[in-house]
Design a protein around this nucleic acid. Sequence first.
DNA 1: ATAATTTGGTTTATAAAATAAACTTGTTTA
DNA 2: TAAACAAGTTTATTTTATAAACCAAATTAT
Lengths: 103, 103
Amino acid sequence: MFKPLDPLLHSELRLAVMSLLISVDEAEFPYIKQQTGATAGNLSVQLDKLATAGYIEVEKTFKGKKPCTLCRITPTGLKAFEDYVAALRSYLNISPEGDAKND
Amino acid sequence: MFKPLDPLLHSELRLAVMSLLISVDEAEFPYIKQQTGATAGNLSVQLDKLATAGYIEVEKTFKGKKPCTLCRITPTGLKAFEDYVAALRSYLNISPEGDAKND
DNA sequence: ATAATTTGGTTTATAAAATAAACTTGTTTA
DNA sequence: TAAACAAGTTTATTTTATAAACCAAATTAT
C-alpha cells in the first residue's frame, strides 16, 4: 500500500539539493548553500551522504586560487529521485486523473 | 525557492497515517497498524504526536469489552496535509497536472 | 609586513526523531 | 487457573539532523 521512502532522499535538505542539481546539472557549494539556506556544516554533511550513496558526484577544483566544490547529480541519483517521487505518490493522492483508489 | 516542510508530516509513518485517514475518515488502531506495517509502539507514539498537534482526534471507546482506539483527521490536519503537499511540489517539480519533467 | 577578515569549507558535539523492545492491563482460551 | 492473546503504552536505543566550533588559504586593512 505505502511504498517505502528512500531515507536518503526523505530529508528536507538532501531533497532540496537533489532537486536543485536536477535542474542545473552542476552547482558550486556556495550556490547550493545560498539556494537552500543551509548552514555550511549541515550542507557539507548532507553532500557527503549523497556522494557516499553515489547519488551525486563531488569534484574539488580551484577557481583561480580559491577552492571550488562542484556537485552534480549522477544517473543513479536521478533514478533514486524518480523512484522517491513515485513512492511519495502513494502517500499523497495527487494523481489528477482520479485514481486515488489504486493506492 | 524551497518551502519549508512541516516536520510533523515529513515522517514516513505519520504521513502514511494521515494519508490513510484522509481516505477513510475514521480508522481503528489495529487497522492503521496493519495498513502501515508499523509496530504498535511506534504507531502509538506517532499517533500521539499527531493528536498533540491537533492533526487527528483519538477517541478511546470499547468494542464489546475490548478497548478500541478510533482515529480521525481534523480540519486542521487536512489543511496541514494540503499545505505539506503544496510545499513538497517546490522540491519535486510536479505540476498539478503531473510531473513536468516527463513532458 | 603583519594583523584582521573573509571565503570555503570540515569536524565534532548536541538536540531531536524514529523505532523497537519491554512492559501493562484486561480478556479469552485451554 | 494458568497460559496465551489483544490492544496499547512506556522506556530505551539507535539514527538523524543540525549547528557550533574549528581549520586553511586568500584577501584586505593598518
